[in-house]
């Protein structure tokens, strides 16, 4: 269990990346979405022990991460896959995983060997395990990244944009792999790709301007957009008037727009079943509108 209380982070220069964030995260797959600059990466880096918060507290499995001892204990239960994963190019997969396992505290040689073998099987890299990492493709590097994150059987797995740069097949495989792993641990998945969340998370938070603006199940977010998702077919100009354009499709009779908002009647908009992406877009639009009404810049 991860308990985050009133977390703030202000960088030098006064940039406030987190602004009183409070969350409890339990077992399973937890999704974290939000626009660029929402504070997701700062939040993940604090959870990973890479950054210290300006104020607030993170308790990971009973360890207070504000203390050096607590951070070290929390790190012993942590697997981390950063957005930009670097690897040692002159090591092969077996050597790299062995090195990481030793540093993670898997000191028994036999146990290390067993874990590495199992994880290479899981990420389907056994056949190329003796190839230097510099020869790996982007997808293979991501897979070795997830393998190293799972070494030591961590109770918390933090993955930042894990599917960026992967082809569709790899992305699906990766999502399934994470979903399997989530049965026995907490996985925090930060992503821009809402589809990744909808396919694998049962709990999610949406962040904006350093705060959580939504917390709940994906279904709840979808429900929020019900009645606000429309299809507009037009041969003329693109619909406007406070509508958020979700997708555009060229058709024989014109252009079909999927929009979120409340279109005026002259658009002859047809209601649509909302998706998680629609829910996210509606939430963003709603938050901006509310802030504008209150005169707050977001």
């Amino acid at each position: 269990m991860i308990e985050i209380t009133n977390l703030t982070k202000t960088y030098r220069g006064g940039v406030k990346a987190l602004n009183g964030l409070t969350l409890d995260i339990g077992m399973g797959m937890f999704g974290l979405v939000g626009p660029n600059g929402a504070g997701k990466t700062t939040f993940m880096r604090i959870l990973a022990g890479l950054l210290r918060p300006t104020t607030g507290q993170v308790i990971a499995f009973g360890h207070d991460m504000n203390t050096a001892h607590g951070r070290m204990a929390a790190k012993a239960n942590l697997g981390y896959l950063p957005q930009e994963l670097g690897l040692y190019p002159n090591l092969n997969a077996l050597e790299f995983l062995d090195y990481m396992a030793i540093l993670k505290g898997v000191t028994d040689g036999g146990e290390r060997k067993r874990q590495i073998h199992d994880l290479l099987e899981k990420v389907r890299l056994t056949d190329v395990a003796k190839r230097r990492l510099k020869t790996y493709s982007g997808g293979m590097k991501r897979r070795i990244g997830i393998a190293q994150a799972l070494l030591g059987n961590p109770r918390l797995l933090i993955v930042d944009e894990p599917t960026s740069g992967l082809d569709p097949e790899e992305r699906v495989r990766f999502r399934n792999l994470l979903a399997d792993m989530a049965l026995e641990r907490t996985i925090i998945l930060s992503t821009h790709i809402v589809e990744d969340i909808s396919q694998s998370c049962n709990d999610l938070a949406v962040m904006r301007a350093g705060q959580v603006i939504f917390r709940g199940a994906p279904g709840d977010l979808i429900e929020r957009a019900r009645g606000h998702v429309w299809t507009i077919t037009s041969s003329g100009e693109r619909p406007n008037g406070g509508l958020t354009l979700v997708s555009t499709l060229q058709m024989a009779n014109g252009v079909q727009y999927r929009v979120v908002g409340d279109p005026p009647p002259e658009y002859r908009a047809v209601p649509n079943e909302p998706s998680l992406e629609d829910g996210y877009m509606w939430l963003m639009q709603d938050t901006v509108s509310a802030a504008e009404r209150e005169g707050i810049g977001v």
């Binding site: 990973a48 022990g49 890479l50 070290m72 204990a73 790190k75 012993a76 942590l78 981390y80 950063p82 930009e84 994963l85 670097g86 690897l87 040692y88 190019p89 990481m100 540093l103 993670k104 505290g105 190293q148």
Partner: peptide
């Protein structure tokens, strides 16, 4: 340079 430092600092290594 290899961008592994971030990963290394998340490990329980003093």
């Amino acid at each position: 340079h290899y961008r592994v430092n971030e990963l290394l600092h998340t490990l329980p290594v003093g």
